[in-house]
Design a protein around this nucleic acid. Structure first.
Length: 106
DNA sequence: GAGGTGACGTCGT
DNA sequence: GACGACGCCACCT
C-alpha cells in the first residue's frame, strides 16, 4: 500500500458538497508534508484514476490545482455543480464547506 | 550521489 | 496584512 493509495482513499471519502485541504490530508495520513498530497493527486491524474480531486484545495480555499484539470474552469464548475460557490478561483464560505478527514474517518 | 522540482504550509520581515 | 524565504519529502534527471 503506497502512501498515494491512501491519499486516493481519503479523497474518495470526501462527501458531496464538501471540500478539504492538502494540509488536512497530510496531517491525517502523517505524510509530513502537504506537497506529498498534491504530488499524489498529480500521480492520480497521470495514472488515470478518477477521484474527486476538485474537492481538495489549499489552506486558503484557493483552487491551486485547477491548472491540472482540462480547461480553465473545470474545477470551479464541478464545485459549483455540487452546491459550492466559487469566486476568483476561491471557495466561498470555505470554512463552512470544510471537511476534516481526522474528524470523520478512523 | 547530487541537484532541481512541485495540486503546500509556516514563519519572519 | 502582503510578500519572500525556508522546510518539507518523494520523484525525476
Amino acid at each position: 500500500m503506497n502512501y498515494y493509495d491512501r491519499v486516493f482513499e481519503v479523497v474518495e471519502q470526501i462527501p458531496f458538497g464538501k471540500v478539504t485541504t492538502y494540509g488536512a490530508i497530510a496531517d491525517f495520513l502523517a505524510l509530513g508534508s502537504a506537497r506529498m498530497v498534491g504530488w499524489a493527486l498529480n500521480q492520480s491524474h497521470l495514472m488515470g484514476i478518477d477521484i474527486p480531486a476538485h474537492r481538495v484545495v489549499n489552506r486558503k480555499g484557493e483552487l491551486t490545482g485547477r491548472n491540472h484539470f482540462p480547461g480553465d474552469q473545470t474545477m470551479a464548475k464541478r464545485l459549483r455543480s455540487e452546491g459550492i460557490e466559487v469566486t476568483d478561483d476561491t471557495v466561498v464560505n470555505f470554512e463552512g464547506h470544510l471537511w476534516i478527514p481526522a474528524e470523520h474517518l478512523l
